[in-house]
Computed example of a mutant assay.
Amino acid sequence: MRLSTVILPIYRWADEGREVWRRAEELGFHAAYTYDHLTWRSFRERTWFGAVPTLTAAAGVTSRMRLGTLVTSPNFRHPVTLAKDLMTLDDVSQGRVTLGIGAGGSGFDATALGQEAWSPRERADRFGEFVGLLDRLLSSEAVAYEGEFYSAGDVRNIPGCVQRPRIPFAVAATGPRGLRLTARHGQAWVTTGDPALYETGTPQESLAAVRGQVERLGAACAEIGRDVADMPKIMLTGFTPDQGHPLDSVDAFVDFAGKHAEVGIDEMVIHWPIAGTEFGADPKVFERIATEALGQLG
């Protein structure tokens, strides 16, 4: 089991941001991710910075910990410009970047550029094309492409990624199309559990849902002759019926993580505490979880 954190991009760099990302590495987290949104839900009227510049700055004050988005989506990104930014970030971080990527939601990001919100079918169609083109852009020095939604006009990405053939993709998906896309292009898989259970489900139902997701991922991998055991399975916590309870104590987290390890999850991601929000865990307990929990999991 690996333990990682997600640090929302809410900190002014000179005031707090630099020290938060440094502290994450000191605590021994495998990776520190950040949300890639223009804003997010309850933080709509609060400070919120861009993901790629934040990760670039974080790369300069860390040396071991992996860095990444959780997750990037097509809502306000284009594969051509995103690929250039990611190649640069991979270079600055000396090969420590993971791209968490998902289809995106129907919230503010979905209409921020002035477009109408996409239907679920169009969102899935765009996501498939987006991931496939981004794969090519990050793996090749030159790409020419004309698709239904995206184009690349003889684009150059030189010298390419430090990580070869490209930075790893951690694909967030639970439906059949998304899981097939994960099997084809992903180096890891991401889940938050089953959103339908968040408010009315039970922890037991949520755990069963995650087990089912892992099984369906395995089936999607088997279809193309891929061993699902070789694909890390990442869970972003905070969106299951347990809500904040796994961060109430080290024992509570060990119990939560252990149960999810049994159904196939091998990387848990916990939110960096933010007082007065849904991520308002006790900072002292959070640091104890970071430094003690993995030892108890074995």
Rank of each mutant, 00 (worst) to 15 (best):
G160N: 12
W189P: 02
V210M: 01
A142G: 11
A144Y: 11
A183Y: 12
G160D: 13
A142E: 15
R164V: 07
A144E: 15
R211W: 08
G153Q: 12
L207N: 01
V143M: 12
E205K: 07
I158A: 15
Y198V: 02
L197G: 02
F169L: 09
I158W: 15
T192H: 11
V214G: 05
E148D: 10
V162H: 10
V214K: 03
D194F: 08
R156Q: 14
V143G: 09
V190L: 06
R156N: 12
C161W: 07
R177I: 13
E215K: 07
L197C: 09
T192L: 05
Y150T: 04
V210G: 06
Y150C: 02
P159D: 09
G160I: 15
R177A: 14
A142F: 08
A144V: 15
R166E: 01
R211C: 04
G153S: 14
G186K: 02
L217K: 07
Y198E: 03
A142C: 14
L181T: 15
T182N: 06
V190W: 00
T174H: 09
G175F: 10
L197R: 11
I158E: 15
G218T: 08
R216L: 13
P159S: 11
E205W: 01
V162N: 09
G201N: 02
G186P: 04
G147H: 00
A183L: 11
V214D: 09
A173R: 01
A209C: 11
A188C: 01
Q213T: 11
T200F: 07
Y150A: 03
Q213A: 06
S206D: 13
A188Q: 04
P165Y: 09
E146D: 05
R216T: 10
T192E: 08
I158L: 15
S206N: 12
E205F: 10
R166I: 06
A142S: 15
E215P: 03
D154W: 08
A144C: 13
P159M: 10
E146V: 02
A142L: 13
L207Y: 05
R216W: 09
A172R: 02
V155C: 02
G147T: 02
